[in-house]
């Protein structure tokens, strides 16, 4: 059997698969960010907090309403999406005429408030959420033990990511969206309600975050800080992929998950900075990101 830098291939495949799983979360979250940035030109710093709210919504539904994992997978993103729509209508929409920075500050503030509230109510250690019965256990793949639930995360994430990409790049609705990004005034002149479209886009983008939150709930503790741990990496993913590029966000999300997985084998101490090193390098060579285009 060959070895790669002293690591047996079984271990390597295992780590790559784990990287792919983490990549699923990066992809889902960065996709939502990319959609929002593409359409609204808002850098949504509340994305991580809304991911956390998604996980907590699922937990609260189970705890107080007895709603299980599968209904929550649909309902929690709807709740988060609705919350996002309210945020957009009441606050964000007032900032479009101003500099990007204001949107960033507003959403950053919102993120701090949301995290602070949940920490106050539920503590910093988080709450346990069980893996649904249908996905308990795991299977032995020969080179590693794969918990069924993690396999499901990769599949669910891929389906949602590709579905979103298809809807935006290949359908009529998506064409409206892209057109409105290029020239909102002209699209409005064709009788399309652009402000409503913007609101719904924001709702959809944060619903994706909520969906990722529900997916994450059984793996990690449902923790008020789970979003802030992730959001910085996800921003790096978006920057590397290219701001506003849908496919860029998806591909980069999975690719960086893989890269991080490899780092955890060869030099674990650096596993939480490798993404930023890549970001710095990409920005130096291709400032618009790997899939972005200069505006």
């Amino acid at each position: 059997m060959f070895e790669f830098l002293g690591v047996p291939p079984q271990a390597l495949f295992g780590q790559l698969l784990l990287g792919l799983i983490n990549g699923s979360f990066y992809a889902l979250l960065s996709l939502g960010l990319a959609v929002i940035f593409g359409m609204l030109n808002v850098i949504n710093f509340a994305h991580g907090a809304l991911y956390m709210v998604g996980a907590f919504t699922a937990w609260l539904m189970l705890q107080y309403l007895g709603i299980g994992y599968w209904p929550a997978l649909i309902l929690a993103p709807l709740v988060v999406g609705l919350f996002g729509i309210i945020l957009e209508k009441t606050m964000l929409s007032r900032l479009y005429k101003l500099d990007h920075l204001y949107g960033l500050l507003l959403t950053f503030g919102l993120a701090l408030i949301l995290e602070g509230m949940f920490r106050h109510w539920y503590g910093a250690s988080g709450q346990p959420y069980r893996i649904p019965d249908a996905l308990q256990g795991g299977r032995n793949l020969g080179f590693m033990f794969l918990p069924n639930y993690r396999g499901w995360v990769v599949v669910a994430s891929l389906v949602v990511c590709l579905g979103t990409w298809y809807a935006i790049e290949r359908t009529r609705l998506g064409a409206y969206l892209r057109a409105a990004t290029e020239n909102p005034v002209l699209v409005q002149a064709f009788g399309i309600n652009v402000p409503r479209m913007i609101t719904l886009t924001y709702g959809f983008g944060v619903a994706l975050a909520g969906f990722a939150g529900v997916l994450a709930a059984p793996i990690y503790q449902v923790n008020p800080l789970m979003g802030s741990n992730l959001i910085i990496v996800v921003f790096a993913v978006v920057v590397i992929g290219g701001m506003g590029s849908i496919m860029g966000a998806i591909v980069t999300g999975f690719a960086l998950g893989l890269l991080e997985g490899l780092t955890k084998v060869f030099y674990p101490e650096a596993s939480n900075i490798v993404v930023f090193v890549v970001m710095a390098v990409v920005l130096l060579i291709k400032p618009a990101g790997l899939f972005g285009r200069e505006r």
Binding site: P8, Q10, A11, G14, Q15, L18, G19, I21, N22, M144, F145, R150, I219, Y220, M226, N229, L230, G261, K264, V265, P268, S271
Partner: peptide, 12 residues
């Protein structure tokens, strides 16, 4: 947040 990679190394 994700320890799976480290746990896998411990496992093997």
């Amino acid at each position: 947040s994700d320890f799976s990679s480290f746990l896998l190394q411990a496992q093997s």
